[in-house]
Write a protein that binds this DNA or RNA. Sequence first.
DNA 1: GCATATTTGTCCGTATGTATA
DNA 2: CTATACATACGGACAAATATG
Lengths: 224, 224
Amino acid sequence: MGLVNQSAAERAAEVLRCRITEGEFPPGTQLSEEGLTAALGVSRNTLREAFRLLAHDGLLVHRLHRGVFVVELDAYALVDLYRMRRLLECEVVRSLEGLDDAQLVPLRREVEAAEAAMVREDWLAVGTANMHFHQHLVALAESRRVDKVARQLLAELRLVFLVVANPRRLHVPYVERNRRLLGLLEAGKYRRAASDLEEYLRISEAQVLTAYGAAAEQRGRASG
Amino acid sequence: MGLVNQSAAERAAEVLRCRITEGEFPPGTQLSEEGLTAALGVSRNTLREAFRLLAHDGLLVHRLHRGVFVVELDAYALVDLYRMRRLLECEVVRSLEGLDDAQLVPLRREVEAAEAAMVREDWLAVGTANMHFHQHLVALAESRRVDKVARQLLAELRLVFLVVANPRRLHVPYVERNRRLLGLLEAGKYRRAASDLEEYLRISEAQVLTAYGAAAEQRGRASG
DNA sequence: GCATATTTGTCCGTATGTATA
DNA sequence: CTATACATACGGACAAATATG
């Protein structure tokens, strides 16, 4: 069975992760064991291990004797997520020094990808490129731990983005801000970049909160 | 079996976590499935789920088809751990404002516990109180995510402390620094506290690195 | 409130693949 | 290279809890 350098549980988790982040299982969905064993071609025990992995990543929540569900962040969790984002990203940028220009290449690539996606009005791709921009941003700290935490934060945030309406308003304004941020990094103005980023993230938080609250009301009216 | 509000896997993971952090299974030890199923009274599947939980917490590492081992941090991982600690703790302290005095009570308690342990020359207890001090310190940010990351960092750090010789030198100097830090927080001098803490953590990192390197050489000579 | 059906939680037996002696 | 030990994975079974009528 195990022909690759990953266990069956890890491979199953990876498949599920993709399906979840692509919106196939929207937040709140229950993932049944029996249904997915057939779909993924693994046993129940293996699937349960995959569930554990994703639950620890924050994408799933375990409710004892109820099963696993795609996580549904409430307002508090969203505020907390952005608090961590600000702490992590701003501090990474602030403590940068003597950055090599080659290190900024991935950031430039994502800004250009976002701008291209904007032209063809692919708002979801704009959001994806923006999130990749931030992933590469924290990668400048060259810390595996920082990378890992940031990846988890952005993965959860992506779930939030899936359920809000009007992705255009949610993603487009930040393309310009990312380009400006990139300019400040190129100029070596790290402190200025950090304070800019902080303002950036506060604005984003406020916008996501209102958009998410509206979406939650929509869902509330629909289901009850 | 499940008489409490936790699954068997979570309970098994909790027992293992305690045993590992108490030094019963020193870093590098392999945890055999067959041996532990009997000891914990759970099946292999349940134990494997517990392994996944602890592996994701960073206490165990999974090597495919080899089994699980208590994590053994190398020098790079230690540097990375301290990088994350500085980022998290310093930024939490720096962004404090208008702290209520009641919020400092847990910090005061841990400083006093450390001083009491120092008097009775219980160096391990000194280290434990110091670590609790830092856990309460980041708790001032009132963020579940920050708390969780800090808890993982300190749990891994504890494993490092277990294998270094001379715990007195490793823990005693920081009791005084923690008290000074507490004084700065009481006085509302958060920026000063943050920069003090940064220096603090850099000194600690250097000391742990040398002590740990020496211990690694010891182990190297013993086993090879 | 009660009985039933469904789903999760847990355990066991077994087969297969991999690493190490 | 062979053999052994062990991790990995599967499928079936029963217990326990929840949800539904």
